[in-house]
Write a protein that binds this DNA or RNA. Structure first.
Length: 894
RNA sequence: GGGCGAUUAGCUCAGUUGGUUAGAGCGCAGCGUUGACAUCGCUGAGGUCGUAGGUUCAAAUCCUACAUCGCCCACCA
């Protein structure tokens, strides 16, 4: 293709707002987000957790997008066929609530509109939000294959839902029945156990007397005291229960008590579930309004009385309480009991009250006809999949959490009395009363051919369709090539807060429908908190819009911050300072590139052709060998870290390499030659720069691509776009000798700078310096110019013996491989100098002693691995030479 | 009631099979603006790795207990 000469005038500061949108467009136009075939390489697929259509994306989504995009871009650059499949979730109850709130502002409720119109109203909302969500993802740089975006209510997923329901039903795993469920009186629907948040609440425990009856049903003087936190549910009592092993109560088991207020006769029964320690050891049994009591009731065949309506108002079974709100009813019945002399006492008691996770209303346990999935048969294979490693959860500790939940799993109430969602694919025949479960809408009753069919009005829990997501998005139940190729997917990445809601169910349903796990790795990220460590919530008003951040700091800065602020599974706080530092990093990279490009002539620079082995690099200048070796090491580390999902560490390694090594040292070293008109560092500058861009691109796609496009006209052999450029693997040969030698050289520079700073030498002034360095002498000879320029030394005298340097009016430093002596007439305080050297000598001597002891230890000698011993010996040698050097310096001082 | 996480520099956090003198960012102190970057550079100060035991040649890292904070799960009504 034709190389257009890109402009060399890069802006002085990186301006994200100028480059991001055009670059994203360029990637889209290039079709780079679509999977490319990769010969013999394993496909890499991530199904994006579908954001709810309840509103804008929040920081959690930005974190998800950053982590997933990083992995996706990395694999794409590795040459793997890579698919990131985006989607959106209809989010049944949550979305319905959002739209209902809007309606409330208009003074209407959904019943005023009717089901059809209400649904249309929700669809309007969905259309609006969906495009906003995709746009936001694009602003974050998400390289998802937008052409495949799926919505949970699309035809495909709808089909998957019906198919799965049908299969589960036929296998006897879905059933309909009257069970006690969690009812939200505000949302007016059943909830699953997971949708109930338990809040520790200070409440009361009331001790109520229940008179006992004699054999003829007459009230006696005897009574029984039961403790309850919910006196209003008394009206639904159908028994009193005590523990069968409780001697205090054994004699009254079998007798009958009189339920106060209602005056119902209830039996005293014995059941193991009753704790003898609690209250008086006797409890009221209310099967209609308490899960435990429901179980007791089943065991003893007790009547079940539901004494509340859908809004949790007391109903006709509540006697004198009928028509009262449940909390009002509590007050009334307590007053009645008090008046009747049946309220013995009240004590403080704290209890966990269930609240609707969507609207925070106190949930009412209530008996209701609902659809359930029998989970135990599904949980078994899902437990096995994690246990035998077919699925790995990162971090590993969540595997235990997962196991615990799975092993104690309870049936899942999947029906919701909502209008927004997947309608339950069950029809009831008006003629024969038959129940039809079908994938396609039935035209007539298969039993009686009746035509008056009515579909179940309820919808499914929104997580039912989410549970099918890894394969419903790929075409299941159709046997599509996509499904065959991409399933099981590689990684499922999401917050740990939806491990049970979503991850666990995908695993169970994936195994059930597909016969294979839905993904190999589950990566769980932590929650983002505000700078004070608080959870971000709308009510607290501390929610941060990720797009505000990208506007302020640039997308790459936001991504880098999110990617490096925390470790898998741990919450982290978001700080402005951190974002600033990330923004500065992007700018640093930009300016380093600007310098490199400006240093180049009109001729495109070729990068070093040789260099895979150290032998090919031996005649290069030391600093070139050093930075190239470091870049190889860093590339290898980054691949390793990304493979281990340690994105934060990978980011840190790259930050340090680019800033502290490439910019702070190599660029400055290269300038020494460049200033002399020597262009020989250019190929290395270009080589390390483009390599750094490749390595950073997955985390910081915009600034790296922007630089790449500038660089392309100046450097030969760069791919058209960084997004599809090859990722460096770091497989070339390392050059440890160069790394060590360059390290020694930098130590000398640092030591001289230190001396200058401590003595207050005028920064402009050149100083004379002596370096005695036996082993590193050739290094210093060849690096003389670097030391002279970077430490402002003139001249640098490399000597073989420290004694050959002046001994008066000098400042000195003893390094592991060299001694530095800087004559500074008039600036030296001998006492201070002596004090400093003496202190260092003490430290060094201590080090020598410690190492000597360690090495003299027979246990250590015999048990520690050889390389550890060798390293300790090397350390001892270094420490000894340092001691000698320091003693020498002190002797010179006199 | 069970379980999990955190506790490392002034602040926020890294530190993944136990093995240099425990690191970074920000902040702080001193110095520095003649062409990459003040969104910068140089130099530096700052930590008995929560406490107490234990295992080990060797512990921030493994084990036990405890403390503080946070979270999850749970049918003592």
């Amino acid at each position: 293709m034709t190389e257009s000469k890109p402009t060399r005038d890069m802006l002085k500061a990186y301006d994200p707002q100028k480059v991001e949108a055009p670059l994203y467009q360029m990637w889209m136009d290039g079709g780079y987000f679509k999977p490319a075939p990769g010969e013999g390489r394993e496909p890499f697929c991530i199904i994006m957790p579908p954001p709810n259509v309840t509103g804008e994306l929040h920081l959690g989504h930005a974190l998800t997008a950053t982590i997933e995009d990083t992995l996706i871009r990395w694999h794409r650059m590795l040459g793997d066929p890579t698919l990131w499949l985006p989607g959106v979730d209809h989010a049944g109850i949550a979305t319905q609530n959002v739209v209902e709130k809007q309606l409330a502002k208009e003074g209407v409720d959904r019943h005023d509109l009717g089901r059809e119109q209400f649904e249309e109203r929700v669809w309007q909302w969905v259309r609006q939000i969906r495009s906003r969500i995709s746009t936001q993802h694009m602003r974050l740089g998400a390289s998802a294959d937008w052409g495949r975006e799926v919505f949970t209510l699309d035809e495909g997923p709808q089909r998957a839902v019906r198919e799965t329901f049908h299969r589960l039903y036929n296998d006897g795993l879905i059933y309909r029945g009257e069970r006690i469920i969690n009812w939200c009186p505000r949302c007016q629907t059943a909830l699953s156990d997971l949708e109930v948040d338990h809040e520790e609440t200070k409440g009361s425990l009331w001790y109520v007397r229940y008179p006992l009856l004699d054999g003829d049903g007459n009230v006696t003087d005897e009574y029984l005291v039961v403790a309850t936190t919910r006196p209003e549910t008394m009206v639904g009592d159908t028994a009193i229960a005590v523990n069968p092993a409780d001697d205090r109560w054994r004699r009254i088991v079998g007798r009958t008590a009189l339920l106060p207020v209602i005056e119902r006769h209830v039996p005293v029964i014995a059941d193991e579930a009753v704790e003898t320690e609690f209250g008086t050891g006797a409890v009221k049994v209310t099967p209609g309004h308490d899960p435990t009591d429901f179980e007791i009731g089943k065991r003893h065949g007790l009547p079940e009385i539901v004494a509340m309506d859908k809004e949790a108002r007391m109903n006709e079974h509540a006697g004198p309480l009928a028509g009262l709100d449940r909390f009002e009813a509590r007050k009334v019945i307590l007053a009645d009991l008090e008046r009747m002399g049946l309220l013995e006492k009240r004590v403080d008691h704290s209890l966990a009250v269930g609240h609707c996770s969507r609207c925070d209303t106190v949930v009412e346990p209530i008996i209701s006809m609902q659809w359930f999935i029998n989970m135990q048969p599904l949980a078994g294979p899902a437990i096995a999949a994690v246990r035998d490693g077919r699925i790995e959860i990162i971090p590993r500790r969540f595997e235990r959490v997962y196991m615990h939940w799975m092993e104690n799993i309870r049936d899942w109430c999947i029906s919701r009395q909502l209008w927004w969602g997947h309608r339950i694919p069950v029809w009831y025949c008006g003629d024969c009363g038959g129940q039809i479960v079908a994938v396609e809408d039935p035209a007539e009753c298969p039993k009686c051919s009746g035509k008056t069919l009515e579909q179940d009005p309820d919808v499914l829990d929104t997580w039912f369709s989410s549970g099918l997501w890894p394969f419903s998005t790929l075409g299941w139940p159709a046997a599509t090539p996509d499904l065959r190729y991409w399933y099981p997917t590689a990684v499922l990445e999401t917050g740990y807060d939806i491990l049970f809601f979503w991850v666990a169910r995908m695993i169970m349903l994936g195994l059930y429908d597909m016969g294979d796990v839905p993904f190999r790795h589950v990566y769980l990220h932590g929650l983002i908190r505000d700078a004070e460590g608080r959870k971000m919530t709308k009510s607290r008003g501390n929610v941060v819009d990720p797009l505000d951040l990208t506007e302020k700091y640039g997308t790459d800065a936001v991504r880098f911050t999110l990617a490096t602020s925390g470790t898998p599974g741990n919450d982290f706080r978001l700080f402005d300072e951190r974002l600033e530092s990330s923004r500065n990093f992007a700018n640093k990279l930009w300016n380093a590139a600007r310098f490199v490009i400006q240093s180049m002539g009109d001729e495109a620079v070729g990068m070093p052709q040789e260099g895979r082995t150290v032998a090919e690099r031996l005649d290069w200048p030391l600093e070139d060998r050093w930075i190239v070796s470091r870049s190889i090491r860093v590339a290898a580390e980054v691949n390793q870290l990304l493979g281990d999902f340690q994105i934060n560490e990978a980011g840190r390694v790259l930050y340090d390499f680019v800033w502290s090594e490439y910019c702070d040292w190599y660029l400055e070293m290269a300038k020494v030659r460049l200033k002399d008109g020597d262009t020989s560092p250019l190929p290395i500058l270009a080589y390390v720069l483009q390599k750094s861009l490749r390595l950073l691109h997955p985390i910081m796609p915009f600034v790296t691509e922007a630089i790449w496009q500038h660089l392309r006209g100046h450097v030969e052999g760069l791919e058209d776009a960084l997004i599809i450029a090859a990722f460096p693997l770091g497989e070339e040969e390392l050059d440890p000798a160069a790394e060590e030698d360059a390290g020694a050289l930098m130590d000398v520079v640092r030591a001289i700078r230190n001396i200058r700073a401590e003595r207050g030498v005028d920064p402009a002034r050149f100083v004379e310096a002596y370096v005695s360095a036996d082993g590193t002498r050739p290094v210093l000879e060849s690096g003389r110019q670097i030391v002279e320029v970077l430490a402002r030394v003139r001249p640098l005298r490399v000597i073989s013996n420290a004694k050959d340097a002046p001994s008066t009016q000098v400042a000195s430093a003893v390094l592991s491989h060299a001694q530095v002596i800087v004559p500074l007439a008039g600036l030296i305080d001998i006492d201070a100098e002596r004090g400093k050297l003496t202190r260092q000598l003490h430290e060094a001597q201590g080090e020598v002693n410690r190492l000597q002891q360690k090495l003299a230890n027979e246990q250590f000698r015999s048990k520690a691995p050889e390389n550890v011993i060798a390293r300790e010996e090397e350390k001892l040698a270094v420490a000894r030479s340092r001691v000698e050097g320091l003693e020498g310096r002190l002797a010179e001082l006199g």
